[in-house]
């Protein structure tokens, strides 16, 4: 029965493979990509983006043909239709760690990578990469769907397209990291998704109350900063502030997540 050592366990050493950090990233990548729900998530959000794009493009064309001035660059229209995709990236990031607490597999994860910061960094790297890719893909297919139907009414420059793609990529990656940090702190999908809905919804609800400081504050919510990046607007602030705002949210959420990971028992 000494068969357990039948094949060498340390053969990889000689290959001079990845570092410790690299191996925790490989671990997290394997987990995320080997679960079916990840692919469902990507598929559903792509379908929603294409459907919304076609709908918006068609309605732009119809309105314009009837004499309304709705002309807008396709990438900008597309970005506004990406709210579902943004939300799904945050859900994916949330489940990435929350489901480990639900299923108990967090124990396996921490047995494999016991240094909390290294484990969390592995997840951050994977979510950032996935967020970047989804941001690029979604803004591109959204733009294509709109341009397909709206035609000239949605004409755009190469700069507008590339800035929206870049903005979406940064936005999606940082939103994903924010959700990951929140989920690490909450350890529950429900709590995190409620918080996420709040992050999305509050900036839209707050102006109703007409409280100045609250309205000002709500401009610094991640979705508002994301819109600046996606649409290249200059109000309420420019792209550099918008990036800083998103970074600040991601850093704060990650710090909270790491603190809980560090203090609480697994």
């Amino acid at each position: 029965m000494s068969s357990i050592s039948g094949s060498p366990a340390t053969g990889a050493k000689t290959r001079g493979g990845p570092s410790r950090l690299g191996s925790s990233i490989a671990f997290e990548w394997t987990k995320l990509t080997s679960v079916r729900s990840t692919w469902w998530n990507v598929t559903i959000s792509s379908v929603v983006t294409i459907a919304l794009g076609l709908l918006l493009g068609g309605s732009m064309k119809a309105s314009a043909d009837n004499g309304y001035d709705v002309a807008m660059p396709a990438p900008h229209v597309a970005f506004q239709s990406l709210i579902a995709a943004q939300f799904l990236v945050m859900v994916m990031a949330t489940l990435f760690i929350a489901s480990e607490y639900t299923s108990g597999s967090i124990k396996t994860t921490l047995q494999s990578v016991p240094v909390r910061a290294r484990m969390l960094f592995g997840k951050v790297a994977v979510i950032a990469a996935i967020g970047l890719v989804i941001g690029v893909v979604q803004s591109t297919i959204g733009t294509a769907a709109i341009a397909l139907l709206a035609g000239d009414y949605s004409s755009f420059t190469a700069t507008e397209l590339s800035l929206t793609i870049l903005g979406s990529a940064v936005d999606f990656a940082l939103l994903g990291i924010t959700a990951l940090g929140l989920a690490t702190a909450f350890r529950s999908a429900t709590g995190t998704i409620i918080a996420t809905v709040g992050l999305f919804g509050l900036p839209r609800i707050v102006p109703i109350f007409n409280i100045e400081w609250l309205t000002d504050f709500s401009q610094y919510f991640p979705t508002e900063a994301g819109t600046v990046l996606g649409l290249q607007t200059t109000a309420p602030y420019g792209w550099s502030t918008a990036t800083l705002v998103l970074l600040a949210w991601a850093a704060t959420a990650l710090t909270a997540g790491y603190a809980v990971l560090h203090i609480r028992d697994a």
Binding site: S7, T10, A12, S23, A26, T30, S34
Partner: peptide, 12 residues
């Protein structure tokens, strides 16, 4: 599941 664990610890 095991493959992920193996990668995390650089096992073949």
């Amino acid at each position: 599941h095991l493959l992920g664990m193996a990668r995390s610890n650089r096992l073949p």
